[in-house]
């Protein structure tokens, strides 16, 4: 059963992006999300003994992260003045009109949409994991973080044409992988 080992040295490289993406779709504040991911790693480190190896490391870390997110909302709710989320009514007459709250927000994403997006995000992460490390790294920097070509080249010490070859291979790999898993 316990064939999952714990390897904290690799956590940040392997899981930080996944955890961050998970957090940001729930907290929607970059800095806060970053802090939560950081907390999760540290908490995971502390309770490493409790890791039984029944689930994969990532699942285990996600379960810690979920707790952290809940704690975050609890904390921000208990602060004075933010005790409850109130919808601002335009005039006092409509105050307490509960029906208005029930009307669906047309600007809100439908549940179906966000569900599909979550699945797509998972598929993308799965495919990124399958790519060779260097390809994945360059592809992430270019496509998801949207860095300039020059910045990446300087950062990783590669030439521009080198970069484009890597990007090309990564894109082909991603397209093939996603074709199987998603399209």
């Amino acid at each position: 059963m316990s064939n999952h080992k714990i390897e904290p040295n690799q956590w940040i490289d392997l899981y930080s992006d996944y955890l961050f993406n998970y957090t940001i779709s729930r907290v929607s504040d970059r800095e806060k999300a970053q802090d939560l991911v950081q907390d999760t790693f540290l908490a995971g480190l502390k309770s490493m003994k409790n890791f039984k190896g029944e689930a994969s490391e990532r699942t285990w870390l996600i379960s810690i992260l979920k707790r952290k997110i809940i704690d975050h909302y609890r904390k921000s709710n208990s602060k004075k003045g933010k005790a409850e989320v109130r919808i601002n009514y335009n005039d006092s007459e409509s105050e307490g009109d509960w029906l208005e709250e029930r009307v669906a927000d047309p600007f809100d994403k439908t549940a179906q949409d966000s569900l599909e997006n979550n699945e797509l995000g998972d598929a993308i992460h799965k495919c990124l994991d399958k790519l060779p490390k260097k390809q994945a790294k360059v592809f992430k920097m270019k496509t998801i973080l949207e860095y300039e070509t020059e910045v990446i080249c300087n950062d990783l010490n590669i030439t521009a044409s080198n970069l484009w070859v890597i990007i090309h291979r990564a894109r082909t790999g991603m397209a093939d992988c996603l074709k199987e898993n998603w399209f």
Binding site: F20, V37, Q38, L42, N117, K140, L145, L178, K179, F183
Partner: peptide
């Protein structure tokens, strides 16, 4: 295919940590 991939990535709104933040995190860790 390539265009499809770009669209999918955009639609998924996958967000990642930037490199400096990751490095900071690594140091603390």
């Amino acid at each position: 295919n390539n265009t499809k991939l770009t669209k999918a990535l955009k639609k998924s709104e996958v967000k990642h940590l930037d490199t400096s933040a990751k490095n900071n995190m690594k140091k603390d860790f």
